[in-house]
Design a protein around this nucleic acid. Structure first.
Lengths: 189, 189
DNA sequence: GCCACCTACTAAACTTGTTGACTAGGTCGA
DNA sequence: TCGACCTAGTCAACAAGTTTAGTAGGTGGC
């Protein structure tokens, strides 16, 4: 039910097509809410039916026509309602954690996954850092937080960043633990 | 598809009933994979049909009979296969993040949610700390990692712990940012 | 002696999310 | 000029997760 709200929060930045939203999602919302284009289009249709967004079709010459969506008054109201509702805490829900839970059964494979994930997390951190630098421009964080009209996207970016940093650190920790164990077990055979 | 694997990883500790699993999940797996009892029972039935677990019914006098599940050889094999597979990275997927993204539209409500979540996270941290102390017994972490036959559950516990610490820190950060903004905006009216 | 909670499940409907393939023209580099 | 990728979507089928409710006896506290 929250994809709706994520879409509306993104539309606070102004009109966008489904395709634009997919890209915007990928760039910023993906830190905390991923979805496929299909989900987006389906949800946009429903939101239009519910009057939360309105669409206008833009004819294009050299490309397929597109539909630009924008928030309606009732969409804005719904978003305000959502921010007032309770938000249940969530868990991480990551297959890698499941694998680590079972790591004692197959340590080598899990170590490989951990190495891969660590690299992935580091790449993501680098990407987030670039995004952050872009958002800040040549201002300090202080200046930005003082001036900007929206701080929400910046704050969520910080959360995504610290999540991935934490991931990378944890992967490293697991690797040293599993490697030390491996050495010990090898020594005792 | 990973609930299956989480269940199997839990069954590495030995036989358990659906009810036991629900509790065990709540206590340890819930850091990274939550589910309702209904999901568990449904999945256990399917897993039995697929030959991954076997059940034996235990007659009880003063309580409903229960079915104790244990891993079969092919279940163990499936779990090993799972640990070897690739594990896609996940995002956080938290409604609170969506609300913070829209925070500029309704700051007061979001601040209330942040305060609530911070408290919740702190409570969870305390619970994890207790669990950790219980796992360690009177050993140091070093000793535990050297001696224990399974380190998986400990490592996942560490991840849950750092996730919640991160949550609490981030909530605090958002609150100071939003409060400073509030003050500034009030001053400028 | 009553109320609330604990064990141990079952049922059904519903909402979300995932996967994979398909259309169809345009741009860009080798 | 060929193939690969980009825009801007659509469709269908399925898998997974959520919600809400119920059964039915036992235990523990006030």
């Amino acid at each position: 039910m929250s994809l709706r709200n994520a879409v509306m929060a993104t539309l606070l930045d102004g009109e966008a097509s489904g395709y634009d939203l997919a890209k915007a999602f990928d760039a910023s919302v993906a830190n905390f809410w991923m979805c496929t284009p299909q989900q987006l289009y389906r949800e946009l249709d429903r939101m239009e039916a519910d009057g939360l967004v309105s669409a206008r079709t833009v004819q294009q010459e050299k490309r397929p026509n597109k539909r630009l969506f924008s928030l309606t008054a009732s969409g804005l109201e719904a978003l305000a309602g959502f921010t007032e509702a309770e938000h249940k805490p969530t868990a991480i829900r990551d297959e890698l954690l499941v694998a680590v839970m079972a790591a004692d059964a197959n340590a080598e494979a899990v170590k490989a996954s951990l190495r891969e994930r660590k690299q992935w997390a580091e790449a993501k951190i680098a990407r987030y850092e670039r995004l952050k630098a872009k958002l800040l421009g040549n201002r300090t964080e202080e200046e930005f937080l003082g001036e900007a009209e929206r701080v929400g996207p910046y704050l969520t970016l910080l959360r995504g960043l610290s999540f991935e940093r934490d991931n990378a650190r944890w992967c490293a920790r697991c690797l040293t633990v599993l490697e030390r164990r491996g050495a010990r077990l090898d020594a005792s055979t």
